[in-house]
Simulated scan of single mutants.
Amino acid sequence: MISASALNSELINKIAQDFAQATGLAVVVVNIHGEEISKLFNFTLFCQLMRQHPQHSIRCRMSDRVGGLEASKSNQRCIYRCHAGLTDFSIPLVITGHLVGFVLCGQVRLRNDVELVHILDIDDRWQADPSLMSEFLNVPEMDYSRVIASADLLTLIIENCLKKQINFVMIKDQQQPAEKSRIGRGQNPHDSKMKKALRYIDTHLSDELRLEDVAAHIYLSPYYFSKLFKKYQGIGFNAWVNRQRMASAREMLCHSDWSIASIARNLGFSQTSYFCKVFRQTYQVTPQAFRLKINEHERPE
């Protein structure tokens, strides 16, 4: 399991700050939920205002998360347009085989007419705000070739500096004296195993998750892990996995334009019909009806 100290280290902020200053691009590191785990470096005033807005900020965070997930599909950098039409790129942060977050850069307007991945519907409602429109026009322009070069450079930095340093921090933590690593008084010895299992589930929702595989990951028998899981979480393993997947499905239906089939595949469902069945059992509405209801609610009067 990746320690919080490893992900929130000064090194992450230092690399992000230096890269932002060298390239003129905005940089932030987020976890797999799209939550910021670094400071915001070189953010344009337009994006700062968007992230302060109650509605627009939700799509900004969703854009961060979906852009990161798009990159994680191939474990390579992905250049895309955000929900406001700006160009960004994302690089997955994979440590010891686990996807733990994404490095996001960009916030530029392209000089070139280039076809890019559209991770979310372009949301132009913000254009009704004169202050946002004015700041959008102040967003710097950049050649597509420079964006590619910046993305490739940051990939090298992450692979050859950041990941190695984080791995070193993790190894150093594991080599602390026994008295420091010993489980505290009154703490159940299985707490750490369950935290590790839940983190594994959270980062593998798009895979075929089997109880046996998660049990093996934390060195417990499937039978014992099944009983332990229900004791800790109050529900069975499969029910918990489906609950987490359905929570992610709601976010994607609200803030992305992915098809129902794409969302189902992204959340580890081999059959769209089964995904729709589970979603309806969870929320008493089909995914299609849920999305229509959200769109009608957000439509300006």
Results as ranks from 00 to 15, higher is better:
residue 268 G to M: 04
residue 10 E to M: 08
residue 163 K to C: 00
residue 61 R to Y: 08
residue 149 A to I: 10
residue 297 H to T: 10
residue 67 G to L: 13
residue 18 D to K: 07
residue 186 G to E: 14
residue 200 Y to T: 01
residue 246 M to W: 04
residue 68 G to K: 12
residue 140 P to S: 12
residue 35 E to D: 15
residue 9 S to E: 02
residue 56 H to D: 11
residue 158 I to P: 00
residue 120 L to R: 12
residue 263 I to M: 05
residue 170 M to Q: 14
residue 48 Q to F: 03
residue 145 S to E: 13
residue 50 M to Q: 13
residue 266 N to L: 07
residue 98 H to R: 14
residue 156 L to V: 03
residue 208 E to R: 07
residue 192 S to L: 12
residue 124 D to S: 15
residue 76 Q to N: 14
residue 264 A to E: 02
residue 36 E to D: 10
residue 208 E to F: 02
residue 150 S to I: 03
residue 119 I to Q: 11
residue 50 M to C: 12
residue 178 A to V: 11
residue 291 R to N: 02
residue 61 R to A: 15
residue 108 V to E: 08
residue 57 S to P: 00
residue 40 L to Y: 09
residue 275 F to Y: 04
residue 53 H to V: 04
residue 252 M to G: 03
residue 254 C to I: 11
residue 145 S to C: 03
residue 276 C to I: 04
residue 66 V to L: 12
residue 278 V to N: 07
residue 108 V to R: 13
residue 62 M to G: 11
residue 267 L to G: 00
residue 4 A to I: 00
residue 212 E to F: 04
residue 119 I to S: 12
residue 10 E to W: 04
residue 240 W to C: 08
residue 210 R to F: 10
residue 31 N to F: 06
residue 200 Y to N: 01
residue 72 S to I: 05
residue 238 N to D: 13
residue 27 V to H: 05
residue 59 R to P: 00
residue 107 Q to H: 13
residue 72 S to L: 12
residue 186 G to T: 10
residue 45 L to A: 14
residue 251 E to M: 15
residue 54 P to W: 05
residue 208 E to I: 04
residue 148 I to E: 15
residue 126 W to D: 03
residue 213 D to Y: 09
residue 190 H to F: 14
residue 258 W to C: 07
residue 246 M to N: 07
residue 298 E to Q: 14
residue 94 V to Y: 09
residue 10 E to K: 12
residue 274 Y to E: 08
residue 62 M to P: 02
residue 181 S to Y: 01
residue 1 M to D: 09
residue 43 F to P: 06
residue 152 D to Y: 07
residue 149 A to Y: 07
residue 243 R to F: 07
residue 43 F to K: 14
residue 232 Y to R: 14
residue 150 S to F: 03
residue 141 E to Q: 15
residue 54 P to C: 04
residue 194 M to H: 06
